[in-house]
Amino acid sequence: MTMATQQIAATRNDAGRTDGAHLGFGRVLRSETIKFTSLLSTLILVLATMAVLVGFGALGAWGIGTSLEAVGPEVFEAEGGLDGIANTLAGTGITFAQLIIGSLAVLVISSEFATGSARATFSAVPKRYPVFLAKALLVAVVSFVAAAASMLLAAVAINPIVEHYGLVQDMGSEDFQRMLWIGSLYVTAVALIGFSLGALLRNSAGGIVSLAGLFFVLPIAFQLIPGDFIADLRRFLPSEAANQLISGTTGPEMLELWQSWLVFGAWAAIPLAVAGFVLQRRDI
C-alpha cells in the first residue's frame, strides 16, 4: 500500500508541468528536429554529402588541370575555350551527393515505420499531416542548406588547385550561381522524392533502391532503348530536366526552360502530395 501511495504522489502532476501543453505546428517541427539531430546516422550522411562534393570537386579540378598540362590549352580552345571551365567544378559530385541526401530523406520517414516509433509519433499527433509537413520541411531545408554549403565549401577548397593550373574560378559568374542555386534546388527535389518514396513504401531499403533506380538506372536505360518515343520521354526525367536547368541551354531536342521548371516542380510536388494523402488514409 505504501508503494501505491508513493506512486500516487509521483504520477500526480502537482507541479503543473503539463499545464498549457497542446499541439502546435512549431512544436511538431521542434519535435522532428530533435528526432533528426538525435541520430548519429543523420550527421554522418550530412558530412558524407560535404565530403563527396568537396572530394569530387577537387578531383575534377585536378583532372582538368592535368589534362590541360598534357594536351595544352589549344585543345580546350577548340572545344569552347578555357573561359568559365572552372566555374562549375564545385558541383562535380552532385550526382552522388543527391543519392546520399536522398537516402537520408528516405530514412527520415521509413525508419519511423521500420522501428515502430511511428506508433508513438502518431499517437502524439493523431492528425498526422503536421508530422508529414514538418518532416518534409526539415528535409527540404536540410538538403538545400547541405548542398549549397557543400558546394560553397568545395569552391573554396578547390580554388588553390584551380589557380595552380592557371585557371580562374569566378564565384560571381552566372554559371557558378546557376549551379549553386539550381543545383541545390535539384538536390532538395531529389530529397523530397526520396522522402515521398520512404513514406509510400515504409521500407528503408525499398525506398533507397527505388530512388537510385529513378536517378541512375532509368536515365541510362532510356538512353539504351532505341526509339523516338523513349528519347522524348527521357526529357521528362527529373535528372534531365535539372541538367538542362543547371546548364541553362535550350535546343531543338530539349524542352523550353519554363517547361523544364514545370517538369522539375511536378517531380517534387506530385509524389509529395500522393505520399501525404496515403499517409493520412492508411493505417499506421
Binding site: 499541439l23 521542434r30 530533435i34 528526432k35 538525435s38 541520430l39 546516422s41 519511423e112 516509433s117 499527433v125
Partner: peptide, 21 residues
C-alpha cells in the same frame, strides 16, 4: 515503439516537444 539508435531521453523529449512539454 522507438528508434533503436535513439536514447530514451531523446525519444521522450521528441514526444514531449510536440505539446511543448
Amino acid at each position: 515503439s522507438v528508434h533503436k539508435s535513439r536514447t530514451a531521453r531523446a525519444h521522450l523529449s521528441a514526444l514531449a516537444a510536440t505539446h511543448g512539454i
